[in-house]
Design a protein around this nucleic acid. Structure first.
Lengths: 230, 230
DNA sequence: CGTTACTGTGTCCGGTGGACACAATAACGC
DNA sequence: GCGTTATTGTGTCCACCGGACACAGTAACG
């Protein structure tokens, strides 16, 4: 099962030479997903992009789920290196890098929901995140949970700011705020908290990533400081 | 657009009486999604559940997206009331309630990704979350962002613990840990952070929700305390 | 009682993921 | 050199999907 993403994949000796490559297929899929969203990625279209028939793809990939998995791992890529930083700086940079990855390929938000195949690159991301916390006094489970909180937040902000139904990338949450202000203008009394919050908004928008990240890192600091003392 | 979820929907006077109801259709869809996952929800199957043809559904719902939106709002329901709690207690209870909602209907994790139609119940959830922070010194934007962080975390934990590819509910992250330990056992040196973390795990598992929530609330406390002083 | 608006149904379409048989290809043992 | 054999990409076929549209039946209105 993990073979596709992890195995060496040496070619067989008999038979005609392969006309395509797994990476080339995945790249075609990525190109399609970047341009038209994840929903546009079908076996037909990917094969068409490479001027082959869709069934030929099944010689390289067991099914669509696996194709998307390969695309995902290839698109997420390797995390950047940030040597010589404190755990807080490292984790913060890591979070912004992750957000940038989602920004490059918004469909990653859709392709990484639910249980799925894990690729080496995705695992490397997790590894780097955990490494940032290796020096602190947190135990393994806490390190993993901490990284999970940060990824969750990055996902949430990315999702809210750059996702549209079909998986297409969009400008910025235009539609949601539209219906929201529409509803609030007519039924403000039904949602006192929201309508109150909408009124007392400072000009600073799209600060969601930094805001939440700061809270999370502050909370982690507190825990780590407590550990260091004991 | 928002009419379906918000409008009063009074029936017309002419013509035969309606044999079904929007809510009944949504309930059938929910039943299907609960049992077999969101992918099992098709017009055919929902109509079949009610012993009607699929095209009859289009007399009640413009398309599948809207049906899922109605299902979602109906399934998420109204948040429970928790009067007389501090902002921290209230937001914490709110978070656990939200997690419980995802637990009841795991497919909500899939149906609430990306841009979509917002229903009154979903908006009520947001409103209650914001209300919990109304008393603090945070401004509206900060209140919204704070609730967003919490929802993101709840989603993340729920997603990791009870989602499977098709949208089916699963036991607990069996598959992911399987591949993870499998990979780590053979290539531990490639992922030093992860393999290190896996070794130093305390017995306490599935604490992810509480752990992250505590960090976030700690971070918020810090901010709120700072505001109160100035 | 005819008109009219509305209901649920049947038929049709393009697109999807995938199973399977098929001819062409190229390395192997002899 | 030559059959054998594994492997390639292809073509055909299927069930299913969301949805457009025309249709006959129904029930309130003038």
């Amino acid at each position: 099962m993990t073979e596709l993403l992890w195995g060496p994949r040496q070619p067989p000796s008999r038979g005609p030479k392969r006309a395509m490559s797994l990476e080339g297929i995945a790249q075609a899929g990525i190109k399609l997903a970047d341009a038209e969203g994840l929903d546009a990625v079908s076996m037909q279209r990917v094969a068409g992009e490479l001027s082959f028939t869709k069934m030929s793809l099944y010689r390289y990939v067991p099914g669509k789920a696996e194709l998307v998995a390969v695309m995902t791992d290839l698109a997420v890529g390797q995390p950047a290196e940030h040597p010589g930083l404190s755990w807080r700086e490292a984790l913060s940079a890591w979070a912004y890098d992750l957000y940038a990855a989602f920004e490059r390929h918004p469909w990653l938000l859709l392709s990484t929901v639910g249980r799925r195949l894990l690729g080496p690159n995705e695992l490397t991301w997790m590894d780097r995140g955990v490494q940032a916390l290796a020096g602190t006094g947190l135990n393994g489970g806490e390190q993993l949970d901490s990284v999970l909180v940060v990824t969750g937040h990055v996902r949430t902000i990315a999702q809210q700011s750059l996702t549209m139904p079909g998986g297409t990338t969009g400008v910025i949450e235009e539609h949601i705020t539209a219906t929201l202000t529409d509803v609030l203008s007519t039924q403000a009394d039904r949602f006192p908290g929201l309508s109150g919050a909408m009124q007392s908004i400072d000009g600073n928008q799209n600060q969601g990533l930094t805001f939440g990240l700061t809270r999370i890192l502050d909370g982690l600091s507190l825990l780590i400081a407590g550990r260091a003392k004991s």
